[in-house]
Structures are given as structure tokens and as C-alpha cells.
Design a binder for these strands. Structure first.
Lengths: 192, 192
DNA sequence: AACATAGTGTAGCGCATGCTACAAAATAAA
DNA sequence: TTTATTTTGTAGCATGCGCTACACTATGTT
């Protein structure tokens, strides 16, 4: 392996790109915006990401999953009270001020903001991961039987997803976080 | 009133603009796209809509409301079974194939796809109109008391909105309309 | 007929976009 | 030291964007 060595940390640069993509959305984040935030120039940018912005965004979605949903999913796997963890996650989305999800859901935004089928497919994948994990966690909860009697389990993922993506839009309408939290509490009562 | 007379029908042109905006979204509908669909040139376009694309879209949102939500709201005001009407409206959004809402919700799309505060404020306004009308209609329904006991009425608009905007995104994930209809049925059981 | 007014068609400006081309610089292997 | 390889910085292309400028045409008023 010969050649000059990179003057930037790839992962750090990816994290900075996430900041820009999250705030502005895929389409509105220009390659120049991204390069500035990542602290690199065009040359390095198109060397590291040969397919440009799209490739960077795909990698940023993977990285985002490691940073945010994965720790949650890991916690869910071992928790005795998964519902409380899930509730806090929904709260974070409803709470526009919070440090997480200040700009909404990274993946749901992608789903509604771009027409790129490749990116939408990836976003779908990550959202499904979370919804399926929620379903599995609550199926293992002590009071699962009661919940099952109310709603068939194959509808649980679509139930979570609709609530999640709904909140992602409704938070732009209803600015009172308390009311959104009340709605979340009501919807999650299904699993109590 | 002197001067040459218009060679196109303003309302027809507006309807064509809606087609383009609905399919492509505000940002992705270029002024040239719109002019072509409306059958007019730059000159007529910027004479009729001095503030350009933004003004056209604002007017298209008003026109859209007259075309689609208003008839629904009128029907709700007099119906003895408002829940059935509401259910069909949700079905139409879930059913990606249907003639209406083939490209999702005109207003919810605006809310998540653009950063223009002026347009978002207008979109919020129209969505609220519908959610409030749903609430009023169901409060007048014969079995309103039972529904009230389950969920406080001030949460009804946010309940409708979250389901609506949620479906608007979930339809991009879950392509089986039957499953979405099952979810709608379950959510609307609150008002039975 | 003369004039003012409203609508139409065309040329093109200034800007931002994603991306390529390519020379210069740095590093490891020979 | 030479060579091959990798990274970096800069110049700039082609395209599409929203929009303006302006001459031209059609119409109503005087």
C-alpha cells in the first residue's frame, strides 16, 4: 500500500454529513454544503464516494443506524419493560426540542422527501428493522397475550410505523409536545 | 377594461398545475413543467402569478381544497353516518391505486417536502380544517359519548392528523392496501 | 384612427447544482 | 533515488433553475 495518507477521519466526516443531511434533507443538502461540513474538498469527496452524494447518503443511513436505532434495539432485547423504552423513543420524536430527532426521523424524512428509489428502499429497510424489533420486544412482554387479543400481531409493525411517521409530520402541525405525548400514551395503551 | 383577452381558462390551468404539483411535489415541479402542463408561456405565467411558483402553489392549495376536501366536509355536515364517510376517505389514501390521493396527501406532502414557512403555514391550515371537521362530525354522532369516554375530544384532531399523515408515509412502506385498511378499521374503532 | 391597456412569445441573465479533469503533493515500495 | 500509488486542491463544464426584459399582438375606449 503506497500513496498519500488521508488528512481526515472517515467516520468523523460521515458524522458531520449526517448533521447536514438530517437538518436539510437529502435534496437540499448540496455537495458543497456537505464538503464544507466534512472539512474536505471536491477531490477527496469524489475519491471517497465515487457515486457522489447518493453513495454518501447511503453510507450515512447505515452509520445513523449504528448511532441511534441500534443501541435502542440492543436495549430492547434484554429489557424487562420494553414498552417504557419504546415510549421514550416516541417522546423524543414528538419533543421537537430534544437533542435526538430535532429534525424528525432520518429515514421517514427520506421516504417522503426524495424520489430516488434506491434511497427509499434503503430507508424502508431501516424503518422495518425498528418496527419489527418493537414488535418482537412487545411479543415477549409479560402482558403480550392481552395485546394480541386486541390487535393481530401482523399489524403491529404497520401500527408502529404509522404512529411513528405520523408523529414525524404531526409535530410540524401541533407544537405542543404535551399533547403529542398524550397521544403517544393513548396509542401505546394497546400494549399495556 | 381594455386589453387583449386571455387565451386560456385560469381555472383549468390551475387544475393542470395541481396535477403537476401533486405528482412531483412543490420543489420538483419546475416552473417550466408547470407552464407546459398549463399550456401557457413564461409571459402569461408571470403576469398571472406575479410571485411566480409560490403564488401559484398557494392558489393551487386553495383550489385543491374546493375540489377534494370541501365536498367531503359538506357531506359530513349532513350525514347520519359520518364515520363511514371518514373511513372511505382514509381508505382512499391507503389505496395507492385509487384515483384520489394517488400521490399522497397534497397538504401533508407540502408539510414534509418544503422548507418554505409560508407554504407550510397554509398546508397546516387546510389540514386543520379537515381534522376539525372530522372531530365536529363525530362529536355529533349518536355514539359520541362512548368515544369521549375513551379519548378526550381535544385529542381528536391530533389523533386524526397523525393517522392521516402516518398513512401518507406508511403507504410508501407497506404496499398491501388490505393491511392498511385493517389498520384504519382498528384505529377508527375508537369512534364506534 | 389614435391611444391605452392587457396578454403572449422569446431571448437570456445570474446563480446553484452535481460532477469531471487534472496537475500538484505526499507517501510507500523498488 | 526513482517509481508507483494515493490524496488533495483548483478550475471549470454542462445543466437546470426561477425569473426579468421587452418587443409584439390583440382588444376596449376615446
Amino acid at each position: 500500500m503506497a500513496g498519500r495518507q488521508k488528512q481526515y477521519d472517515e467516520q468523523q466526516a460521515l458524522d458531520r454529513a449526517i448533521d447536514v443531511f438530517w437538518e436539510k434533507g437529502y435534496e437540499h443538502a448540496s455537495s458543497r454544503d456537505l464538503q464544507a461540513a466534512m472539512g474536505i474538498g471536491k477531490g477527496s469527496f469524489y475519491l471517497a464516494f465515487k457515486d457522489g452524494k447518493q453513495e454518501l447518503f447511503l453510507k450515512s443511513m447505515e452509520r445513523f443506524f449504528v448511532l441511534h436505532p441500534r443501541p435502542l434495539l440492543d436495549a430492547l432485547r434484554t429489557s424487562a419493560a420494553p414498552l417504557d423504552i419504546i415510549r421514550q423513543y416516541y417522546y423524543a420524536l414528538a419533543d421537537a426540542q430534544g437533542p435526538f430527532h430535532r429534525f424528525g426521523c432520518y429515514y421517514a424524512n427520506t421516504l417522503t422527501q426524495t424520489e430516488d428509489e434506491c434511497l427509499k428502499t434503503a430507508a424502508r429497510h431501516y424503518i422495518r428493522q425498528v418496527a419489527d424489533a418493537f414488535t418482537l420486544a412487545l411479543l415477549r412482554a409479560p402482558n403480550a397475550a392481552a395485546s394480541l387479543a386486541r390487535l393481530a400481531p401482523e399489524l403491529w409493525p404497520v401500527y408502529f410505523t404509522t404512529l411513528w411517521t405520523g408523529l414525524n409530520a404531526t409535530r410540524l402541525l401541533e407544537h405542543d409536545p404535551a399533547r403529542l405525548r398524550q397521544l403517544i400514551d393513548f396509542q401505546l395503551r394497546l400494549f399495556e
